[in-house]
Design a protein around this nucleic acid. Structure first.
Lengths: 214, 214
DNA sequence: CATACATACCGTATAAATCCCGTATTTTAT
DNA sequence: ATAAAATACGGGATTTATACGGTATGTATG
């Protein structure tokens, strides 16, 4: 009995060629593939669809991303072992993926033999921890916690978005329907939280930490 | 006689599985693969190394990147038809790759059948233009030219780097061993070139356009 | 009820950023 | 050789940003 595998990745070429590779392994068999989280949900909920043992999930996808899809799978198909499959180890969402119910985090630059080993281990033990791959989990967990304990409020978040623009504080205040003094307070609070001394520093930190996207 | 293909991509899993896929095509044969531009140079210059007809080159690689490698191939192995193979069409380096001598720009989310067609066309005609894929060349060329005609000097570039930090202009002036007035001039020039009104706007534009990395 | 806490706000002082005026030197082009 | 352009710098005016001290209000909590 081969290990039944599902793959989700938005890059068709990678998706199909990885499927080929997995099928070439003695004990693997790709029974499901999808180009997006939405397509996966559609296919998996279809009648007579066989359930995979392991689901390989790309993290960075347009639309329903890896984290959302992982949570959905973990909730609706707890029997499927979900593993993230990402480009780089600096990916901030490693912890998010593990928290979302992934039992492994595999990298796209691993070699095929290791992948085969990993899949077998996930199938048998239910998890796989790539000590070999230099993912520093401790550092990542700390970084995530630091980010969470910042506790940026919705208003601050909204202000931060405006602060990362060409607008003056007066204009921002007008846009947010608040007094200049009020957003003054937001600024001070954020300066302290992000440990900066100027608006440029604030904007840079917000972008660096991914709090604001430009 | 099969088309001889070389692949360069830093993600081992993609590299190896794509090789598998290409080998499964009737008229293709992967005779060379490498995880980096440096490895390619090493392998290609080795004695008795067969030369591929087509080289598929990943654009985003650490170390010797796609553009550099493409130029090297174009200079030293002009007979090899080089094609870029990238993640996304928003990639600014499309034009750079074509200027570096690539005869095609393929996307990783194309489907296998189209890839086979593209490779045959590159082999026969020497080039491939994916009208089907929605790469807007005109827009890209214009964007590149706009960027080039900005003509940002080295000093301005250096100032821009400092401007994207928590430092005051006084501190920047000190760091660059220039008067405050002088960097004042840089600021004004950059405001005009990037069409912004404030330092935050300047920093944002610099990052958005990839002039400064953070 | 009293207390704490977050939110929204005001005045004012100082520092920084922005803008406008002008000049001297060096580089580049004709 | 000389004009044009780029580079570096200065004084000073105005606007914006930053810092600090204090107030009022609603909400939650012991």
């Amino acid at each position: 009995m081969k290990i039944k595998i599902g793959i989700v990745d938005d890059h068709q070429l990678f998706l199909k060629s990885l499927a080929l590779m997995l099928n070439s392994f003695d004990n693997c068999e790709v029974i499901l593939d999808a180009l997006s989280g939405a397509e996966l949900q559609q296919k998996l909920t279809a009648p007579n669809q066989e359930q995979p043992d392991i689901m390989l999930l790309d993290v960075n996808m347009p639309g329903t991303d890896g984290v959302v899809t992982a949570k959905w799978l973990h909730t609706n198909y707890p029997a499927i072992k979900v593993s993230a499959l990402s480009m780089n180890d600096s990916d901030k969402s490693i912890i998010s993926m593990l928290q979302a119910g992934c039992c492994a985090y595999l990298l796209k630059d691993m070699n095929p033999t290791d992948l085969e080993t990993a899949l077998e281990e996930i199938y048998k033990k239910g998890y796989y921890n790539a000590d070999a791959s230099n993912i520093n989990f401790r550092r990542l967990i700390i970084a995530k916690q630091e980010e969470e304990k910042l506790n940026i409020t919705e208003k601050e978040q909204r202000f931060l978005q405006y602060a990362c623009s060409d607008m003056t504080y007066k204009q921002i205040a007008g846009e947010m329907n608040l007094s200049e003094r009020t957003i003054d307070g937001y600024r001070e609070a954020l300066f302290a939280k992000l440990n900066v001394q100027s608006r440029v520093g604030l904007a840079m930190e917000a972008i660096r930490r991914g709090i604001v996207r430009i």
